[in-house]
């Protein structure tokens, strides 16, 4: 029996800035997790990941990160992804600086 697929977003780091980015429904890349496309189907997610892996001229290390649906879009399912989506907790740097994350 195959494992149940966990809803996921496609995420990577931007080649130039290193910042965390997410694949959006219009095939673009956003720095805001809430703009990401949430995949609930394993095949669609794998296909999107494969496309991301082909974009090595702008991305580093794409992978599928577990997420769940929230009122404002996808939310992280694990605390590591929550830190990636928000930035460090000791300074308001990264996405917090850019005003990109909600409290």
């Amino acid at each position: 029996m195959s494992r149940r697929f966990t809803p996921s977003v496609v995420t990577a780091n931007d080649l130039f800035e290193g910042d965390v980015v997410y694949l959006t429904p219009d095939q673009g890349w956003s720095r805001d997790l809430s703009h990401a496309q949430l995949f609930t189907d394993a095949r669609a997610a794998e296909a999107a990941l494969a496309q991301a892996q082909a974009q090595s001229d702008r991305l580093v290390g794409p992978y599928l990160a577990a997420a769940r649906s929230g009122p404002n879009g996808p939310e992280p399912a694990h605390f590591r992804e929550a830190f990636r989506a928000r930035g460090p907790s000791n300074y308001p740097h990264g996405k917090q600086e850019a005003g990109m994350c909600r409290p």
């Binding site: 290193g18 910042d19 965390v20 990264g94 996405k95």
Partner: peptide, 15 residues
Amino acid sequence: PLRLMNGLYLQLHAY
């Protein structure tokens, strides 16, 4: 491996 030889890592939010 070339960037690591020169001390450049990619971490959670940035290089």
